[in-house]
Design a protein around this nucleic acid. Structure first.
Lengths: 210, 210
DNA sequence: TTCTTATTGTGAAATTTACCACAATGAGGT
DNA sequence: ACCTCATTGTGGTAAATTTCACAATAAGAA
């Protein structure tokens, strides 16, 4: 689509996006690479290079138009559209995600949350979402056109649950289970490991690196 | 301590650690780089190179002793000791973290959780932790020897809260607020942005890269 | 002991990523 | 029209990271 974009570049685009959003909220119309660099502690040249991967649309002397840049990044990251999300597992993490404002804002709509526990099924979260029976999952995935499954189940059952989700046609998974899961080649999975950030921090603490 | 360890290496060590832990639980005494590589989808040579940064302790022909390797990684990452954690903000994310098993397992002990809301103060989480008044924070940090502050407060007040936490002597922060915060040079901060994983996934979905 | 097999540790090459330096250029002022 | 200032876009280079390739060696079998 845009030629080959290096992985670190894609990662950074998402970070630029957040800053742009804030900058836009503050009413700014343009940003310069040096401004972004200062905020994000990156070299301006890197930012310019990153943005040049998908065609220069900055204006020399002026910088980048914030809104144009945001729109372009949205397109590249695929968040210029809506993705339907199903959360599997209504434990603490699942429930925390269920109405996490950051997701909806970026085009990820939580279309449902399921669990096995009789006690949880039927309860509502913030009067918006009702926890449904995991046995309804196949139907939910089909009828609500779920694009992304979010795994928040106990470790022991994770692989089994993942297999079902995939079998019902979901090809994209965000995995909060601290365990490497096996997926068919055509299924994409992103692991989220919150404890990695804590470990990164303690590594820095004992090695006193910045 | 171990000479200069490249950043990507430190990141991967934490990932190896998780796999080792699981492998150890399954009763294995040794692992080979090719096994780890297969599980983690990395080249065995990379794993060997990574491990060689802090002195070879594998055995040719046999592999690595799982427990020795875990212990070494614990030391490098600084999780061979205990860190005291204070969670600031008892919203959904703060509460989800409060008893997240992954943290305690890796040496991060949640010593408290504070909030401003009258409604929340005094409530307990899983009969273990009681939400305390944010005004007690200074005392809590001092008395419980808090090493790490975890920011889970609304965006608008994040910078202000961070400033207090730092002022009270905490030098390490894990930030769940989706906003870049300013810190003095001697304070370390790790940003956690859950929505980045969702964006990485959607990027892959629209670019169909693996 | 000697052979075979498995696997590490590592110098060097290959690849990827970051950074620099500067020409190009748009905007605003004079 | 011309000058000045700010800032982009990018070719080339430097630095970082990954991968290769293979000698070294431990363990077990013959």
């Amino acid at each position: 689509m845009f030629g080959k974009i290096p992985k670190p570049v894609a990662r950074r685009l998402a970070i630029y996006y957040r800053v742009l959003k804030e900058h836009n909220k503050n009413g700014a119309e343009t940003v310069s690479s040096s401004y972004l660099g200062r905020i994000l502690d990156l070299k301006p040249s890197q930012i310019r290079k990153d943005l040049s991967y998908f065609g220069g649309f900055g204006k020399r002397g002026t910088g980048y138009n914030v809104i144009d840049l945001m729109k372009s990044i949205e397109k590249i990251l695929g968040i210029d559209r809506h993705w339907n999300v199903l959360i599997i597992g209504a434990g603490r993490i699942g429930r925390a995600l269920a109405n996490y404002p950051g997701l909806v804002q970026d085009g990820f709509t939580v279309k449902g949350i399921v669990d096995v526990s009789e006690k949880k099924i039927g309860k509502t979260i913030d009067e918006q979402l009702t926890i449904e029976n995991v046995e309804e999952m196949e139907k939910i995935i089909r009828e609500r056109k779920i694009d992304i499954g979010v795994l928040c189940v106990p470790s022991e059952v994770a692989q089994k649950v993942l297999n079902s989700v995939v079998q019902y046609g979901v090809k994209s998974i965000v995995n909060f289970v601290p365990k490497r899961l096996k997926t068919p080649k055509d299924v994409m999975i992103e692991d989220v490991q919150i404890s990695l950030s804590f470990k990164a921090l303690s590594f820095r603490m004992v090695n006193s690196q910045r």
